Computed example of a mutant assay.
Amino acid sequence: MKISKEKSEANRAALVETASRLFQQKGIDGVGVAEISKSAGLTHGALYAHFPSKEALAAEALAWSLEQSNAKLYSGTVDGEPDLERFLCDYLSVDKRDDYADHCAMAASASEIGRQDVAISSKFTEGYLVLVRAFERRVAANNPGADALAIAMGIVAAMVGGLSVARATAKARPEVSAQALRGVRHIIDAALRKPD
């Protein structure tokens, strides 16, 4: 029985969104296609009708998740630029630290992306560079003459790494986790500040 184009598109979207959530919660290597298919309410066959491999699904799921994150970045603007203050408060919060399924696919997957194929690495890199460009503009505006690109790359790396460290320490030492988040925010604020 042939399904409609609309149903096929809905199935594909369900697979991508479900895979994104599960990959963030359990890691790309920590979840199989059977679990993804079942969680999306579909069969293995439906998954493979849309994606030739788990890696292809992972690349699209990562891209989708990063698009969602970047949409949040650009959802609020100040003078036509992303509201980085709001974004940082949200990104480096304890609530978001504990939200693996719906917050920062980069922090959830950074340690394992290097072991994945080039398609997945490319999607990660694209998402990283979107964030870098947003911070680069702010650094350049606040501090003309600074190496805005290098500083912005460091800011985003600190955000992703800091969130990863905060997650890794939260169960054993919640106070260390919270201090890591505050420390990263302090470093970022200093990097974004206009010189006196």
Rank of each mutant, 00 (worst) to 15 (best):
M1G: 15
S4Y: 01
S4G: 12
K5G: 07
A10T: 10
N11L: 04
R12D: 08
A13I: 06
L15Q: 05
L15W: 02
V16W: 01
T18G: 01
T18N: 04
A19V: 02
R21K: 15
F23V: 04
Q24F: 05
Q25P: 00
I28R: 09
I28C: 04
V31E: 07
V33N: 08
I36N: 02
I36D: 03
S37M: 01
S39V: 05
L47H: 07
A49E: 11
H50W: 02
H50I: 02
P52G: 14
S53K: 04
K54C: 03
K54P: 07
K54W: 08
A58E: 00
A58S: 12
A59R: 11
A61K: 05
A63Q: 15
S65A: 15
S65T: 11
Q68G: 08
A71S: 14
K72C: 07
K72E: 15
K72S: 09
L73D: 07
L73A: 03
Y74C: 10
Y74D: 08
T77S: 12
E81Q: 14
L84V: 05
L84K: 11
L84E: 02
E85D: 10
E85K: 14
R86S: 09
L88K: 00
L88P: 00
C89H: 12
S93P: 03
S93Q: 03
V94S: 08
K96P: 00
R97Y: 02
R97Q: 11
R97S: 10
D99T: 04
Y100G: 00
D102P: 01
D102G: 13
H103K: 10
C104W: 14
A105N: 05
A105W: 06
M106A: 15
M106C: 11
A107T: 15
A110L: 14
S111N: 14
I113S: 12
G114P: 02
G114W: 01
R115Y: 13
Q116C: 14
S122F: 11
K123E: 15
K123T: 12
F124C: 05
T125F: 11
E126R: 12
L129Q: 12
L129T: 08
V132S: 09
R137N: 13
V139E: 01
A141K: 11
A141N: 11
N142Q: 13
P144Y: 09
D147N: 15
D147M: 04
L149N: 11
L149E: 09
A150I: 03
A150C: 10
I151C: 10
I151R: 06
I151F: 02
A152D: 07
G154L: 07
I155D: 02
I155Y: 00
V156A: 04
G162Q: 01
G162H: 00
V165D: 08
V165Q: 13
A166P: 02
R167Q: 01
A168C: 09
T169D: 05
A170Q: 14
K171H: 11
A172N: 10
R173W: 04
R173T: 08
V176D: 13
S177R: 00
A178Y: 05
Q179W: 10
A180N: 09
A180R: 03
A180H: 06
G183F: 06
V184G: 10
I188V: 15
D189T: 11
A190I: 04
A190T: 14
A191H: 06
A191Q: 14
A191W: 13
P195K: 12
P195Y: 06
P195T: 11
D196V: 13
D196C: 06
